[in-house]
Design a protein around this nucleic acid. Structure first.
Length: 295
DNA sequence: CACTTGACCTGTCCGC
DNA sequence: TGCGGACAGGTCAAGT
């Protein structure tokens, strides 16, 4: 599920909820999801919540960090004291569902319990849910975080100042023969772009997703660069994209897909010309684009 | 080496 | 209504 905007949405929400809390207990309901001994987290205080590419990290006292990858269907939901389900909540459910926030549910894999700053056991709990069990939680030493293989071979963060269109071009050119859409999803080229935003970026750039990287002009690399920044920024502003599973820390959906130009819009009229959006398959994944204005 | 496909899982939706 | 197959936001490993 979550690409950069979704993970960033969770990060921003989560840091407001748990910084300063101390972990009381950690319950692991699916052992394949969790790497490390959950008991070493007991008594450790939350210092920082960070994001790198599509991964989310929590730094704790005692040189410990918890790293999450949500893969396709992972969710992190914090339920606080006497919290009531709102009409829009869809914890563990689907956008059309009116399920109330009953936690844990059948897809809950890990539960974190906390002690508040007054030293009392908090009623707030953090739930890691993951229907498809692709996601993971790993415990690592904070001081050795950079040695972890899951944080290596990641390209630049697209919203940081250092990222430029020339860097994007150089990294993409490692895949001269790949269609641009497939190359954009390589996390070592630029980190955080997945299947939804790859289609959206190329629509904004008006570039055909089937076009080989080697055939792109400098002007096109620049438009793709601008498209990356624009679509990721707008997506964060809309709280991310919810196709079926994504929810923020409160259990609420994201609204970017209501504003998307092409993703999931097969057969609909193009936002930029009189043409229609089409869906094709590239490297086994669905790609949406407008053949009449993306050249 | 460059690239594609299958596997990991569970659930939903669509066509027959 | 039931059943099989395709498909779903990601990433590895194995295959061509």
């Amino acid at each position: 599920m979550p690409e950069l905007p979704e993970v960033e949405t969770i990060r921003r929400g989560l840091e407001k909820k748990i910084i300063g809390l101390t972990i009381h207990k950690v319950g692991v309901l699916n052992s394949k999801t969790f790497f490390g001994d959950p008991q070493i987290l007991w008594g450790k205080k939350v210092l920082k919540v960070w994001r790198k590419a599509k991964m989310l990290g929590i730094d704790l006292t005692g040189d410990l960090s918890i790293v999450f990858h949500l893969k396709m269907t992972g969710q992190l939901i914090y339920i606080g004291n006497r919290q009531q389900a709102t009409g829009d909540r869809l914890i563990g459910g689907h956008p059309t569902s009116d399920m109330k926030g009953q936690m844990p549910n059948s897809s809950t894999r890990v539960i974190f319990e906390f002690i508040d700053p007054r030293g009392e056991i908090s009623e707030g709990k953090l739930y890691f849910n993951d229907q498809r069990k692709f996601g993971w939680v790993k415990l690592v030493q904070s001081s050795k975080i950079k040695d972890q293989k899951f944080l290596q071979n990641l390209g630049p963060e697209p919203l940081e100042k250092e990222f430029s269109w020339e860097i994007l071009k150089n990294n993409l050119l490692r895949h001269k023969n790949l269609p641009i859409k497939v190359a954009l999803m390589d996390q070592s080229v630029v980190s955080g772009i997945g299947n939804i935003y790859a289609s959206e970026v190329l629509f904004l750039a008006r570039v055909d997703p089937r076009k080989k990287v080697a055939a792109l002009s400098d002007k096109e690399f620049e438009k793709i660069y601008q498209g990356i920044k624009k679509s990721l920024e707008v997506a964060i502003e809309k709280g991310g994209s919810t196709r079926a599973h994504f929810v923020n820390i409160e259990g609420e959906r994201g609204y970017f897909l209501d504003y998307a130009n092409v993703y999931g819009k097969e057969g609909q009229k193009c936002h930029g010309c009189p043409g229609k959006v089409e869906k094709i398959t590239q490297a086994g994944r669905g790609t949406y684009f407008c053949p009449s204005c993306q050249k």
